[in-house]
Write a protein that binds this DNA or RNA. Structure first.
Length: 720
DNA sequence: GAGCACTGC
């Protein structure tokens, strides 16, 4: 949340007037005025007076925890303090990680402006598909996942003098893995500088693995011969509880920095609400009729809920007496096309109060100006993972205290606000302090594959901040073994495991690409994997459901969803090429693709994402020397390859018409979005298994059950 | 008959 830390940069409407008649002097004045304004804003941030103290602490301590509340300025200012303190000398880089791409980009832009430099020079950012850095970059903002990938190439992170892990309290998988890794790197680098490596060698001069830490050993080897200064670590968190981080880093010092946030009045209900949607509705109108001006932000759990509340508000709004202020509802959730997402930033027309109906996208990812009231029913739709069944579930659960606090904070960004919590105060005390870290509720195959590639052989022995369950680790090791990524003794296999680790994909997709080069259908599989790796490609607004369905039918393949996705991708490429031939301008091409998407009910953002992934992965597999060939019209070959790749996700039709998944022997249903929803093929493979109202499988293709025996005998020959 | 939120050399 970049904007949390520096309210100024959030101005979407920095109404800079560009006047055709500006003279050189105006421009220069403008420059000085802006420079002065920036200096003034910087010096008024709560972090400004403690610059010296923080620098001293960083010099004295290798690891520092900084707890900075909203609006403290830590994200933009600290890297500049460190740069001025000499941490960017000798070509060294100050790295700052963020959990989200937008954050990395917007903060980097702001800091470049503050420093008066061009973005990509002294200050830059690097996120997947976009590297805006150069050899002169000294302050580098990036996503935490990207730094993890960088570590595969440079295990001792030798370019960095300091790494700042921002928003650590969010505890994303990437943050958690990164913290463990950084701890090892820091350890190894300080041993490199403090002691001579000779101390660690046996009589034959071989490095000893005294601490049974294979990664550290590997790191020491990679430090050998290089003169690396110790790695400074700064963990920044917005949660008030610094203790967990401090303990994890051996009692590291913690510094608190005041935030800058307006007071928010907390209101609770007297009793528990039996129907929270009804309670939400009542509260919206209560605020609208009794409170002063200001927009309302409502936190709901999902699209369906948002759409139904939107209808109810609009119905009831007709009863508002003539002449009084009207209500404008605006929905926002991640799968909404971006043009519609943008509506939330538009100020309400005069005579209207804006009511924003949002999922938790509005908690951290999107900051909406003008909010004075927050309605929080105290619920969130959360993903959980059961390693035993390999099943993901999306269930509605109570928020944590930290989450409730984050939500209420959205009312106090521009002035004092009010937060209406739709549960009694006594219930608040019963909430979990913070959300369970993601690493404890996800499939670990990807994490384990990456750790193995980083030289961490003993996964259970790895120093996780919070260790995932043994079952989750064992299940993922087993899966990686079945995919051929690990050897009998659970070491990374060569070359398959190494190749899989290099690809920024779900391991099962990486494997499917390697197999596809043998089945001569890598071109098709590459498209499939890119399309499967993005959020939903199809978009069906409620009011145009029939049209959307008809549009989708044009792409449908009777074989299943995988070939359907390929059809969509190829049709979009054709549209692009046609437009390029007709008109060479990039912008027109982009516009005609966006028109094509609209006509065909395709989510433009998802499709662009798929194209980016496609080109990135294509570069990788070409470097690996895999053969990118097409199977042409021979879709049988492609489906055989799907069976060989996704054999772990096969399901058989039961006599009663339901399906049973092989691996977990659970009863599953075909998701209604699948092209195979109505047809009942005997045997299918699928890519996703999610429990919502039912156990749904998604992205499905029909196969011949005999292929499983033939193509995955290691799994099926022993199981009948 | 239905889709929380992020992210990747």
């Amino acid at each position: 949340m970049p904007s949390m830390s520096h309210p100024e940069s959030r101005n979407f409407n920095q109404n800079q007037k560009f006047n055709g008649n500006t003279t050189k002097n105006d421009v220069r004045d403008d420059y000085f005025v802006r420079k002065q304004r920036i200096a003034q804003q910087r010096s008024s941030l709560p972090i400004a007076p403690v610059e010296k103290r923080i620098l001293e602490e960083v010099r004295k301590n290798d690891t520092l925890i900084i707890v900075g509340e909203t609006g403290s300025g830590k994200t933009t200012q600290l890297p500049q303090f460190l740069f001025n303190g000499g941490f960017g000398r000798d070509g060294k880089v100050i790295g700052i990680t963020q959990p989200r791409r937008v954050a990395a980009v917007t903060v980097a832009k702001r800091v470049a402006e503050e420093c008066g430099v061009e973005l990509g020079q002294k200050v830059g950012y690097s996120i997947r598909f976009e590297d805006v850095t150069s050899s002169s970059t000294r302050i580098k903002y990036m996503t935490d996942g990207l730094l993890l990938r960088e570590a595969l190439l440079d295990p001792s992170l030798s370019r960095y003098s300091v790494i700042i892990v921002d928003e650590a309290h969010e505890r994303t998988v990437h943050t958690d893995v990164l913290l463990g890794l950084l701890k090892n790197v820091q350890n190894a680098r300080s041993r490199c500088t403090n002691q001579q490596i000779g101390l660690e060698k046996d009589n034959n001069g071989v490095l000893l693995d005294k601490e049974n830490n294979s990664q550290c050993l590997g790191l020491l080897k990679s430090c050998q011969g290089k003169k690396l200064p110790p790695l400074k670590l700064i963990i920044m968190s917005a949660s008030l509880d610094a203790r967990v981080f401090s303990e994890y880093f051996g009692g590291a010092r913690a510094v608190h920095i005041q935030g800058r946030q307006y007071p928010v009045d907390m209101l609770f209900t007297h009793h528990a609400e039996p129907d929270y949607l009804d309670a939400t509705l009542i509260t919206i109108f209560q605020i609208h009729l009794e409170e002063g001006p200001g927009d309302i932000l409502v936190f709901l759990t999902g699209q369906e809920e948002i759409e139904s509340v939107e209808r109810l508000v609009q119905e009831r709004a007709q009863q508002i007496p003539e002449g009084s202020q009207k209500i404008l509802t605006v929905p926002i959730f991640s799968s909404l096309p971006s043009e519609q997402q943008m509506q939330v930033f538009r100020p309400a027309p005069s005579g209207f109060r804006k009511v924003i109906l949002a999922t938790n996208i509005a908690e951290t990812s999107v900051t909406i100006p003008g909010i004075k009231y927050v309605i929080d029913p105290g619920l969130v739709k959360a993903r959980t993972y059961n390693p035993l069944t390999g099943m993901e579930s999306l269930i509605i659960v109570p928020t944590s205290k930290a989450q409730a606090l984050q939500r209420s904070g959205r009312a106090g960004r521009e002035g004092p606000g009010k937060c209406f919590r739709l549960y009694p105060e006594s219930e608040f005390g019963k909430l979990l302090d913070s959300t369970v870290p993601e690493i404890k509720r996800c499939n670990l195959s990807n994490v384990i594959l990456q750790l193995k590639a980083l030289g961490v052989d003993d996964i259970t022995g790895f120093d996780f901040m919070e260790k995932p369950s043994r079952m989750a680790i064992v299940k993922s090791l087993e899966q990686l073994f079945l995919l051929g990524a690990l050897t009998d003794d659970y070491k990374l296999s060569k070359p398959v495991g190494q190749q899989m680790a290099r690809l920024p994909l779900d391991p099962i997709y990486s494997k499917s690409l390697i197999l596809a080069s043998e089945f001569n259908c890598l071109e098709e599989m590459l498209i499939t994997v890119a399309m499967l790796s993005v959020e939903s490609i199809f978009y069906a607004p409620r009011e145009k459901l029939e049209e959307a369905r008809a549009a989708r039918k044009c792409f449908s393949s009777p074989e299943g969803d995988h070939l359907t996705l390929i059809n969509v991708y190829r049709a979009s490429v054709e549209c692009l090429e046609k437009s390029k031939r007709a008109n060479s301008k990039d912008r027109t091409t982009e516009r005609s693709l966006s028109k094509w998407c609209k006509e065909n009910f395709i989510n433009n953002r998802s499709l662009r994402h798929a194209r980016d992934i496609h080109s990135q992965i294509r570069r990788h597999i070409e470097q690996m020397g895999l053969l990118v060939a097409s199977c042409g019209d021979d879709t049988l070959q492609f489906r055989r390859c799907l069976a060989a790749s996704f054999f772990l996700n096969a399901a058989l039709k039961q006599p009663d018409g339901t399906y049973r998944a092989f691996a977990s022997s659970q009863v599953v249903q075909i998701h209604p979005s699948s092209v195979l929803f109505r047809t009942k093929s005997d045997c299918i493979i699928f890519n996703e298994l999610v429990r919502t109202n039912h156990n749904y499988i998604r992205n499905i293709t029909r196969i011949d059950p005999l292929w499983l025996l033939e193509l995955a005998p290691q799994y099926y020959a022993t199981q009948n």
